[in-house]
Deep mutational scan, measured.
Amino acid sequence: SKDAAQYVYDEAQKGVTQVTVNGVTFKFDNWQKLLKYAQKLLN
Rank of each mutant, 00 (worst) to 15 (best):
S1N: 13
S1Y: 13
S1E: 08
S1Q: 07
S1P: 14
S1M: 11
S1C: 15
S1T: 13
K2T: 12
K2C: 15
K2F: 15
K2P: 08
K2V: 14
K2E: 08
K2M: 05
K2S: 11
D3P: 09
D3R: 01
D3H: 08
D3Q: 04
D3S: 01
D3K: 00
A4M: 04
A4D: 13
A4P: 14
A4T: 05
A4L: 11
A5Y: 08
A5C: 15
A5D: 10
A5L: 13
A5Q: 09
A5G: 07
A5W: 14
Q6Y: 03
Q6C: 15
Q6P: 04
Q6T: 03
Q6D: 13
Q6A: 04
Q6K: 06
Y7Q: 08
Y7T: 15
Y7K: 06
Y7P: 15
Y7A: 14
Y7W: 12
V8L: 10
V8Y: 14
V8N: 10
V8A: 11
Y9A: 09
Y9G: 11
Y9D: 12
Y9L: 13
Y9N: 08
Y9M: 07
Y9T: 13
Y9H: 07
D10R: 00
D10G: 08
D10P: 05
D10C: 00
E11Q: 08
E11L: 10
E11F: 14
E11H: 06
E11G: 03
E11V: 14
A12D: 07
A12R: 03
A12T: 10
A12S: 04
A12W: 11
Q13D: 12
Q13A: 11
Q13Y: 11
Q13W: 13
Q13I: 12
Q13M: 12
Q13F: 14
Q13L: 10
K14G: 14
K14W: 14
K14Q: 07
K14E: 09
K14L: 09
K14I: 13
G15K: 08
G15F: 11
G15Y: 15
G15L: 14
G15Q: 06
G15I: 15
G15D: 02
V16H: 03
V16N: 07
V16M: 03
T17M: 07
T17F: 13
T17P: 07
T17D: 06
Q18F: 09
Q18T: 07
Q18S: 07
Q18E: 08
Q18V: 10
V19T: 04
V19R: 01
V19C: 15
V19I: 11
V19L: 12
V19M: 10
T20E: 08
T20G: 05
T20M: 06
T20R: 07
T20V: 14
T20S: 11
T20P: 03
T20D: 04
T20Y: 03
V21I: 14
V21G: 02
V21F: 08
V21H: 08
V21Q: 06
V21P: 06
N22A: 14
N22H: 09
N22K: 09
N22R: 09
N22F: 15
G23R: 06
G23L: 15
G23T: 12
G23I: 15
G23D: 06
G23Q: 05
G23K: 05
G23S: 04
G23H: 07
V24D: 01
V24C: 15
V24N: 06
V24Q: 07
V24E: 04
T25A: 11
T25L: 10
T25Q: 06
T25H: 09
T25W: 09
T25R: 05
T25K: 10
T25P: 12
T25S: 07
F26M: 09
F26N: 03
F26A: 03
F26K: 03
F26E: 02
F26V: 04
F26Q: 05
F26W: 08
K27M: 15
K27L: 15
K27V: 15
K27Y: 14
K27N: 15
K27G: 13
K27Q: 12
K27H: 11
K27F: 15
F28W: 06
F28S: 02
F28L: 12
F28D: 02
F28E: 02
F28T: 02
F28A: 03
D29L: 14
D29V: 13
D29G: 12
N30S: 12
N30D: 12
N30R: 10
N30I: 15
N30L: 09
W31A: 00
W31G: 00
W31T: 00
W31S: 00
W31V: 03
W31L: 11
W31P: 00
W31K: 00
W31F: 07
Q32F: 12
Q32I: 13
Q32V: 05
Q32M: 05
Q32C: 05
Q32W: 12
Q32A: 10
K33H: 09
K33F: 08
K33V: 04
K33Y: 05
K33W: 06
L34E: 00
L34V: 01
L34W: 02
L34P: 00
L34F: 02
L34S: 00
L34G: 00
L35M: 02
L35R: 00
L35F: 05
L35S: 00
L35H: 01
L35G: 00
L35K: 01
K36L: 07
K36V: 06
K36N: 08
K36R: 04
K36Q: 06
Y37G: 00
Y37H: 04
Y37D: 02
Y37M: 09
Y37N: 02
Y37K: 01
Y37F: 13
Y37A: 01
A38I: 14
A38K: 00
A38M: 12
A38Y: 06
A38D: 00
A38V: 14
A38R: 00
Q39M: 12
Q39P: 00
Q39C: 15
Q39E: 05
Q39L: 11
K40T: 07
K40N: 04
L41N: 01
L41E: 00
L41M: 02
L41S: 00
L41V: 04
L41G: 00
L42D: 00
L42M: 04
L42A: 02
L42R: 00
L42S: 01
L42G: 01
L42Y: 03
N43H: 04
N43R: 10
N43Y: 04
N43C: 00
N43W: 12
N43S: 05
